[in-house]
Design a protein around this nucleic acid. Structure first.
Ligand SMILES: [Mn+2]
Ligand SMILES: [Mn+2]
Ligand SMILES: [Mn+2]
Ligand SMILES: [Mn+2]
Lengths: 215, 215
DNA sequence: TTTTATTTTTAGTTTTGTCTAAATTTAATT
DNA sequence: AATTAAATTTAGACAAAACTAAAAATAAAA
């Protein structure tokens, strides 16, 4: 499998979680910053290799084989992110790009040894679960902060949007995974929240609350 | 710079250490397991990018810029090898292939943080020196075991040949970097050595002694 | 110094992954 | 149901990196 093929498979995997019936050509092109015609070409190749099932105009889904490959790439991506943050001291907004390259290093032994070295982490620095060596993903129980009842206490377990901008906003507000959050009040008009994070009171827009997972 | 370009630059660097006047097309082809005609094509491209100076039929040398790039690739290769051995527990004969891929990950910050994490090692698992962030290589004093006087004590500091076969032979004989070696006797006929390694007596062919560096 | 052998380069293809522009299919609107 | 719009695919082209076969240059041998 080439790096390009792996990038396609991974994108199809992520899009499948949202649209399991089939992923559109255009959606894939958008994620990979390429053109729809290039996607069509690649779908034929991946279909020949039995990694996706594809009928033209109908979108694609991953085959068993493709799904497993995708999970292994995601596993590598997330384990490398843990390494970069926990061992090398990168901050959580700096690691995605580098992991995007590291995820393509081809050695099962490497990734399993890395997993052990890191202490078999369950989640990456953004709270996303790490598939085990067999591809099994332990689902992490979580709710969006925007959908949680008032006056209960939670702690942050992940982010939905892991863009640099959002992560840096969270850093600025001293919100990190593990922070304790209590929703004090919700504004009816625009769903703005008043919250207490690690004891400190804060006002948070719905857009923020909608991208923060708590448990 | 593409992965392929980087592999060429690195090979030219290694060959330059032996033939500094200019590296042949065929030698490069041999190292990269490709054809001479492919090398010629690539030399034109690298020359256009001012990484090598090339006149046809006359061989190539690295430019200032090419030399620096080469050292950075070697730096990455060797640091990753240290990581694989020291942190992940790979043995020294397993790491070359994986480092061959890892050396192409493009992030200066990554490699400098890795360097710090590893404690700024001076040499890789095979005793080869690691260029610093500026490309400076501290030369390691060393002699081949085959060229050392009799009855003096040394310790192993590196291997010339780092093929799996040779490294596994050394493992079998319990010879590692750091081992204390004393040459007891040298056979006139074929230069076979009788040595004491960490106190244990051993007979060693000239081919072996010719690939083991001591200090 | 010719002749022969070796090395290196050129010319012409191939494969992978991309692109643009045009054609086709499906979806959405009148 | 017919028309328009949007999404998708085809056709044809290109750049990167490789190959084979043939030509040219250099080195070695007679
Ligand atoms: Mn990637
Ligand atoms: Mn992540
Ligand atoms: Mn390499
Ligand atoms: Mn090495």
């Amino acid at each position: 499998m080439t790096i390009s093929e792996e990038n396609y498979i991974k994108v199809i995997y992520h899009l499948s979680l949202v649209s399991p019936k089939g992923v559109n050509t255009n959606a894939i092109a958008g994620m990979l910053d390429t053109k729809a015609s290039s996607v069509t070409d690649m779908m034929k190749k991946l279909s020949d290799k039995d990694l996706v099932s594809y009928q033209k105009y109908q979108g694609v889904t991953l085959t068993e084989k493709g799904l497993h490959s995708a999970k292994m790439i995601v596993r590598k991506h997330r384990l490398w992110e843990v390494f970069l943050v926990d061992k090398l001291g990168f901050s959580w907004d700096e690691v995605h790009e580098i992991a995007e390259e590291l995820e393509h290093i081809k050695s099962e032994q490497l990734i399993n040894k890395l997993d052990a070295f890191l202490g078999y982490p369950a989640a990456d620095p953004h709270g996303d679960p790490i598939p085990d060596a067999k591809g099994v993903i332990k689902k992490i129980e979580k709710q969006l902060l925007s959908e949680v009842e008032i006056n209960a206490s939670f702690h942050c377990v992940g982010v939905k949007d892991s863009s640099t901008d959002f992560l840096k906003y969270l850093d600025k507000q001293k919100i990190a995974l593990g922070s304790v959050v209590k929703v004090i009040d919700k504004e009816d008009f625009d769903d703005t929240l008043t919250v207490e994070i690690d004891g400190k009171r804060l006002t948070i827009s719905n857009k923020i609350a909608n991208n923060l997972y708590v448990q």
